[in-house]
Nucleic acid binder design. Structure first.
Lengths: 108, 108
DNA sequence: TCAATAGTTAGCTATTGACCTAAGTATTAA
DNA sequence: TTAATACTTAGGTCAATAGCTAACTATTGA
C-alpha cells in the first residue's frame, strides 16, 4: 500500500545492483523460498536478505512467511510501472524528432 | 561503441538517482546545452556534470561539444534496451501464471 | 525432546557516491 | 585584446551501501 508513494527512481535504484537485478530475473521464472533463491549467489545469507529487503521495500518483490519458510514473489505491477515510464520517455523523444522532421519538410 | 558491453543493471543504476532520473525526463523533451539542462537543479555545476558523466558513461545520453557549448541528447536506444528487459521479466512472469492456471483447469 | 533447518538480528568495516569549493582552460563577443 | 561565458579539473568531506561474522529465534522431522 505504500507502493504508490514511492518515486520511480527508487525502483530503478533497486534494480541497479547486479545481485538484485539477478534476483528479479530468477523470480520472473516463478516464486521461490529465500534459501532456494539465495543458492546461486555466493554471498552470506544476511547480505542476501538485505538485497531482498530492498526489493521488497520498493515494491518489486512481495514475500510471505508460512511456518519457517518465506516465499518470494515478483510484483509484476511494479515492473510494469518502471517499463511504462521508460516507454513514455522514448515516445516523447521520438515524437519530438517527428515534429522536427515535419518542420524541415515545411521549409523545403 | 562501448555501450554493447555495459550490463543493463548499470543502466538501471544510472537511472536510480533523482537528479539523473530528472535529467532523462528533461532530455526526452529535446536536446539541451549543459547550462540550460543544469538550470533547474540547485546543485553546483561540477556535481551536475558528474551526473551527466554517469548518464553518458552508461549510454543513456550522448554529448557533443561545439565551440564552448556541449549539447546533450537522450540516447533512445538505451532507454529501449532497459524497457525491453522489463517487458521480458513481466512476460515470463505472466506466462508462468497462465501455465499454472492451465494446470489447475486440467486437474478440475 | 532434540537436532536440523530456515530465516533473523546485531554490529562492524571498507568502499563508493553525492556533494562541495577553488582554480583552471577554451571560446566568443565587444 | 580583454572580459565574459561555458564548461573542466582537482581535491576534499561525509553519509550510505554492500559486504562480513557471530549469535539468536522459530519451526519441523526423527
Amino acid at each position: 500500500m505504500a507502493n504508490q508513494s514511492i518515486s520511480l527512481d527508487r525502483v530503478f535504484w533497486a534494480l541497479g545492483d547486479p545481485t538484485r537485478f539477478a534476483i528479479v530475473e530468477h523470480l520472473s521464472q516463478g516464486s521461490l523460498s529465500v534459501s532456494e533463491l539465495a543458492k546461486p549467489f555466493s554471498m552470506a545469507l544476511p547480505t542476501f536478505l538485505q538485497h531482498l529487503g530492498v526489493l521488497e521495500k520498493y515494491g518489486l518483490v512481495s514475500t510471505k512467511k508460512v511456518g519457517r519458510v518465506r516465499t518470494c514473489t515478483l510484483n509484476a505491477e511494479r515492473v510494469d510501472q518502471a517499463r511504462t515510464w521508460l516507454e513514455i520517455q522514448e515516445k516523447q523523444w521520438t515524437n519530438r524528432l517527428d515534429a522536427l522532421d515535419k518542420l524541415l519538410e515545411d521549409k523545403s
